[in-house]
């Protein structure tokens, strides 16, 4: 009858390429996310060097100076100045420090709590697991913002209090993810082998479980970092986050609120910074998940 079709029609190549595109897209998100985050990190680190003004220096003559692209704007205050005449660009640069400290600090605190609970639940299973799940559900039931507001109000507002409070409140995802992975790891050969060789539980967790959780932990950490950054901004916006002269972006938006009618850029500028940082962190987390799980996003 007929011979085998020898050449591959071009349509097949195209279809084959389409298969790989989602992964590439994941990488694009990852790269954008990483770029944004690095920019913020540099802003925070080098704020003292690059900031044109002291972020706390008030200058009554410059009050409500518009940004340079507005009518009447000048290069002296590139992003304008706020109601006290403080240079907005300088405040924005220093504000990155606050967001990043809160984000990273909260991720570390909540990561330690959540990972401990998650590993314990996944490794021991049974009653321990039930109790851990109970704690996780209870945690989910608590209204985060409200409790954070109340705690900050009661303990006084400071960077440390906000960070610790958020850390104590945002460990649930860490716990759920580590629990699920630990359950999978627990029955793997190398864990069984270590058990047979008489390794202690702590050793197994240290040497067999934790290293295998690192990928997932990193992903959750970025996502929690993003959430913590938003929450800090929200708390500061509501007046119960970090205290007043600090250039927290949430606080800047809150202070700009009074000028919403005539100087809306006082709100939009720190908002865009906040949005970009959170977007970048989320993109990084999603991207990491895409490239570490075989089936990609979904």
């Amino acid at each position: 009858m007929t011979d085998i079709v020898a050449s591959t029609p071009p349509a097949q190549d195209r279809a084959a390429r389409r298969m790989r595109r989602p992964r590439w897209m994941g990488h694009a998100g990852l790269i954008i996310g990483l770029a944004i985050l690095l920019t913020c990190l540099l802003m925070a680190l080098f704020a003292p060097l690059v900031a044109p003004h002291d972020p706390y220096a008030q200058d009554l003559l410059s009050r409500f100076a518009p940004p340079v692209w507005h009518e009447g704007g000048s290069w002296n205050h590139v992003l304008g100045a706020d109601h006290l005449g403080r240079d907005y660009l300088s405040r924005l640069l220093y504000g990155a420090q606050i967001s990043l400290i809160i984000g990273i600090g909260t991720a570390i605190v909540s990561g330690i709590i959540g990972t401990t609970i998650g590993i314990a639940a996944g490794y021991f299973g049974g009653k321990v697991d039930s109790i851990a799940m109970f704690f996780i559900t209870a945690r989910l039931a608590m209204p985060v913002i409200l409790i954070a507001l109340a705690v900050v109000a009661l303990f006084g507002s400071s960077l440390t209090v906000v960070m610790l409070t958020l850390g104590l409140l945002l460990w649930d995802r860490f716990a759920l993810v580590t629990r699920a992975s630990t359950i999978q790891l627990r029955s793997q050969e190398f864990v069984t082998a270590a058990q047979i060789q008489g390794a202690s539980t702590l050793q197994i967790v240290r040497h067999e479980i934790l290293p295998n959780l690192l990928n997932n932990l990193l992903i959750v950490a970025t996502l929690e970092m993003a959430q913590a950054i938003v929450l800090e901004a929200a708390l500061s916006f509501l007046g119960l986050g970090v205290p007043a002269p600090l250039p927290s972006w949430g606080l800047m938006i809150s202070e700009g609120k009074a000028s919403i009618l005539f100087e809306p850029w006082l709100i939009t500028i720190p908002g865009i910074a906040l949005f970009l940082l959170v977007l970048g962190t989320n993109l990084l987390g999603d991207g990491l998940r895409d490239i570490t799980t075989p089936q990609g996003r979904n």
């Binding site: 009858m1 007929t2 011979d3 085998i4 079709v5 591959t8 097949q12 190549d13 279809a15 084959a16 389409r18 298969m19 790989r20």
Partner: peptide, 21 residues
């Protein structure tokens, strides 16, 4: 007559059915 099916996979196009009648 001469049915061909190609499925794209990670490793390249998989010719699952070749010239089947």
């Amino acid at each position: 007559q001469n049915l061909n099916v190609m499925i794209p996979t990670q490793g390249g196009p998989l010719h699952a059915v070749q010239d089947v009648s």
